[in-house]
Structures are given as structure tokens and as C-alpha cells.
Design a protein around this nucleic acid. Sequence first.
RNA 1: GUGAGUGUGGCGAAGGGGUUAACGCACCGGAUUGUGGUUCCGGCAUUCGUGGGUUCGAAUCCCAUCACUCACCCCA
Length: 421
Amino acid sequence: MEIQRPRGTVDLLPGEVEVWQALESAVRDVLDRANYGEIRTPIFEHTELFERGVGETTDIVSKEMYTFLDRGNRSVTLRPEGTAGAVRAFVENKLYGTGALAKLYYIGPMFRYEKPQKGRLRQFHQYGAEVLGSELPAVDAEVIALSLSVLQRLGLKQLNVELNSVGCSVCRPVHRAQMIERLLPHRDELCRDCQVRLEKNPLRLFDCKNESCQAVLREANVPYIVDVLCGECKDHFEQVQGYLEAMDVPYKIEKSLVRGLDYYTRTAWEITTPGFSTIAGGGRYNGLVEELGGPSTPGIGFAGGIERAIAVLAAQNVQIGRTVELDAFVAVADQVAEHTAMAVLTSLRRLGLRADRDYQGRSLKSQFKLADRLQARFVIVIGESELASGKATVKQLATGAQREIPFAELADAIEQAGSEW
RNA sequence: GUGAGUGUGGCGAAGGGGUUAACGCACCGGAUUGUGGUUCCGGCAUUCGUGGGUUCGAAUCCCAUCACUCACCCCA
């Protein structure tokens, strides 16, 4: 049987990859202007990094990792997200040593062993940014604004920033105890998933889409974490909002927003658009660097899904990416013109024009058809008579206008050609 | 991981046991001399995801397998 690509992967072909390139340059451009530097970390890491960094109770670690043993019997894992690797690199390369803030971004493939469906693949791609070394709320505001800017830059509309705070090591345990205390008597009324959540990570109960579970939460009078933050978290959250308002970044508080990764503290947000799952999300992670063996360093970051952004682009009919029409197509009308044609073709390319020719021995007529299909602006015909006169026959396809132009002047003529030729 | 649906040429899509597997698009060639986009003519699946089974006979029935799609879970 024909070998097929592994499940949950895709081939990106010419014609669609241009959109990716445009998206990637938008990411680079937006983040570069904010003085973030690109970091490229390995696509696989020791499994332990994700177990410790992402959290053993998360779905990602407990059931979605692409883990295998290498030939040296080491357990390695294809990275399921970008933050753990970036933070590991920050620690390992002692980027904290300079005392400067580390502002990093990345773009690349991520892997999660899941059953593929709409907007979910086993190899998918994310771009993301991390700031390590500041806990000031202004940084939260910057990162949130940037996560939105990238998508706005692409021309996307109807983007919503959903914002929340999930507290810290001071207020979270208090809230957690409260939840357990109030919900334990109603344990049986919760769905199976929520019963497990109640034990492992009660906060995630707010995430349940099951209406009956939400009803239980209401009846038990369980407070949202954002309503019972400790003084410092509350102050931080308010300041973040103040900055966002000053920066004119629209947002709405989403009290039930809880992100799936264990490492988040305080600020958490997602960017959504109607009709799609989350297209980008982020949060603060003040304990992660220390957890991974570095000095206590606050951090915050976000990640966006490239496939998802592209899906939204398509849905909103936004065109990005270069077009690939040809500046010139060189048609060979006669065998004797082969060498001259190749010389002309090469010289056009050297001068920066996009040019091509036929390599399948087509008739002149077919060569014109091909040129038309390739959306060539000009067809340069070279045959016996052109050789004799030293001038190529040049036809502008859009208008049908045709001229004789000396070989040496071809590139200039084409480059400078306007619409009325 | 659970559930449902689908799988026929490059793409879309008929055919639901009986000699040559519709059709549309795309593609290739041609319509007298070296010229495209329209039109006309011609060509283009020893084969119906793969493997096995039932049958005199299968793309059509059965089993398995793979892949895709969608939903749940969760997220990007």
C-alpha cells in the first residue's frame, strides 16, 4: 500500500504555504518591534521536563504526550507546548545572569497525541512569547496586547480578549479549600469528570460545560476565584486592567476562565472569536522557573495556534500572503533558440524577476496556454526570426499588445511596464 | 479514549451483485503556416482505500484493517 502521512499530520503545499509565511512574518514583525528575540529550542525534550513543567495532572501530560524511548533508553517527548522548553533554555543558558529581562518568542511545531478533528492535529503549530524576570502588571498588559496585536495585524476581526485571574499560592489554596468544603456534600450531583476535578484541581470545575454542574456550583454558592483573591493578587489584577484601558486594549472579565495548565498564576486570558475554539491563550507563571531548577523568577507568556488563525482568516475571507504570478514566461519557438532562451531566462532571474519557461517540449501554442495558466504578465517569444533580428517578441497577456524588444533591454522593459504598454 | 459517518480517475460525483465503471471540472492533444483566455473535436480509471471472505460472477454483500470527517473530552 502507498505510504501515507502519519495520522493527524498535514502536508502544506505550494499555494497554501504562502499564507503560513505571511503569518510567520507578521508574528516576527509584531514581536520584533516589541524587542522580543526569537528562541529555537529542541522539538523533543526529556519527558521529565513536561511532567514537571506542565503538570502531571494536566490532560496534556496524563494522556496526550508523544513519548517514546530513544536508542539509549531515555524517555523523550515531542514538545506539546512551547513554554516548558523556553523556560528550560532560559535556566540552562542562564539568561537570568545578565539581569536583563528575557523577552523571547518562538514559532514551530508542537505535538499532542490526540484523536484528530476540526482544529486539532497531532502535529500542529504555535507561535508564542514569554517574558521572564518581571512581575509588574505592566508586563502582563504588554503581553496581552501583543497576543492580540498579532491577530489584528493579520487583519482578523471580532477578536475578544477574555481575562481572568487565577490567584497565587496564597489565595488559591484558600479558595480551593472553600470549594471542596462546599461541594463535597454535593459530590454525587456532579458529572464524573467533575468529581475527579474536585479532587485534583477544583478550579477546573468552572470549565465544565455541563449545565447541571454549573447549577451545583451556583447552589453551593461557590465563589469565583477572582472574587476572593488575596490583596496582592487583587491589586495586581486591577492594575493590569488599568494598563489595558490606558492602552486601549478591549477585554472582558471572564470569571469562569481557567486555563488547563497547572503552572498559571494570577493573570490568565484567551483570545476567542465567534464560531471557533480559542485561537490564542496565555497566562502568568510565577513559580515555573523555580520549579524547573532556576532562580525564583516570575514569568508570563502566551501561545497562539497557527492552524486556527489560518482557519479564521479563511472564514473571515482575509487574504494574506504573496501571489505567485510570473513576471515573464519565455517561449521557445524553435529549437535553434534554445541557448538564447536559456540565457534570457537566466538574465531575467538575475535581475530579480520571477520568470519561467516550458520544459516539457510543448508546442508554441501550448506554451502560451501554460503562460496564461501561470498568470504570466509577459510572454517572451524567441525563435528563428528573433535570433536573426536580435529582438525578442514580447506580448503582454492582459492586453494582447505585442512588441519587439532587443534582448539586452528585456528586463528593463518588463520591470517598467505599466498597465498601458 | 468513547460514539457516529465516509472512502470510486488530479478534484467533485453517479452506480447498492451480471458483458466496455455515468457525468462535470481540471489536464493533454488537435481545429493548415510561430501566439493564450471563448467555442468545437478527440484523449484521459484492466479498476472502485487496503487485505481477506461469500458467490458461477462483487465497486456493489460480509469481516478486518487503514485513513478522513464530525461530536464528546480537552485544548492551539
